[in-house]
């Protein structure tokens, strides 16, 4: 039915002219096989070229097009219009992030948090084997122990879903902690102690009250809430073992 339309209410904000963000309504052709991102792209091409948002791959891999779709953080490339049609769809920038322009958020705080958990392989320099000895091999079981956490695409939906990130701006947050755990779990990695400085701190796992929405909205089934709970158990064991006289440093 080519003449059918669907209404998109999009939060607009241009800091050089707007005092505060406000909603603008667009009528968009309704196609059953269109995702929300297709509709937004249509607006940009045919109605208002100044509409600003992030997107790239259109296939749930790059993690750029996360927005609040009717109040829920979603990848707009993975939400079909037919989920809502004929009701209107409300599109807002990801919650709890400062808005830079229209649907674009400022990601600086997330980038800092991500770096703080050192999400890369760390080796003790004196234990590094020479290149000619080849790569560090891993068994399928060793791969399986961290693979789930490695699926994160940094789309930040989990931050927009987590009420704690809204209340505590310092909270390191679900994705960063899950990525830290991804490297802690990696048999090639030796950096857990360095990461614990951040992960076991009050601003990281102990700020989490296990709401669990991060795992609900994750488009890659990473289960950050599970990662945080595992980190809590491990950090608690660390804490009690550090009290034992023979483990005191």
């Amino acid at each position: 039915m080519p003449d059918e339309k669907i209404t998109l209410e999009i939060l607009r904000y241009h800091p050089e002219t707007d005092e505060e963000p406000s909603f603008q309504t667009f009528e968009v052709p309704y196609h059953e096989d269109w995702v929300v991102l297709d509709a937004i792209n249509w607006i940009k091409e045919h109605v208002d070229g100044t509409l600003t948002y992030r997107w790239s791959c259109r296939m749930g891999v790059c993690g750029s097009c996360g927005m609040m779709v009717n109040g829920t953080p979603r990848l707009t490339c993975a939400v079909f219009l037919n989920e809502f049609h004929p009701e209107p769809i409300k599109i807002e920038p990801l919650a709890y992030f400062p808005v830079e322009r229209d649907l674009v958020t400022v990601m600086d705080s997330f980038m800092e948090k991500l770096q703080s958990v050192k999400p890369w392989l760390i080796r003790n320099e004196d234990e590094e084997k020479p290149l000619e000895e080849g790569e560090y091999l891993q068994s399928p079981a060793e791969l399986a122990s961290y693979k789930q956490f490695s699926m994160c695409i940094n789309c930040m939906l989990c931050y927009a879903a987590c009420p704690v990130t809204g209340l505590e701006s310092e909270f390191v947050g679900p994705a960063a902690i899950a990525l830290g755990m991804r490297y802690n779990r990696d048999s090639r990695d030796q950096g857990r102690e360095q990461r614990q400085e951040v992960i076991a701190s009050h601003d990281a796992i102990w700020n989490c009250t296990f709401v669990g929405e991060c795992s609900v909205v994750c488009p890659k089934d990473v289960d950050p809430a599970g990662a945080i709970q595992q980190a809590k158990v491990e950090s608690t064991i660390d804490w009690y073992t550090s009290l034992l006289p023979w483990t005191k440093k």
């Binding site: 076991a200 809590k232 950090s235 009690y240």
Partner: peptide
Amino acid sequence: MAKSNEPIVWSLFSA
């Protein structure tokens, strides 16, 4: 960042 003493209360909560 300071090491947290939260494990005491969290382990009691958990148990």
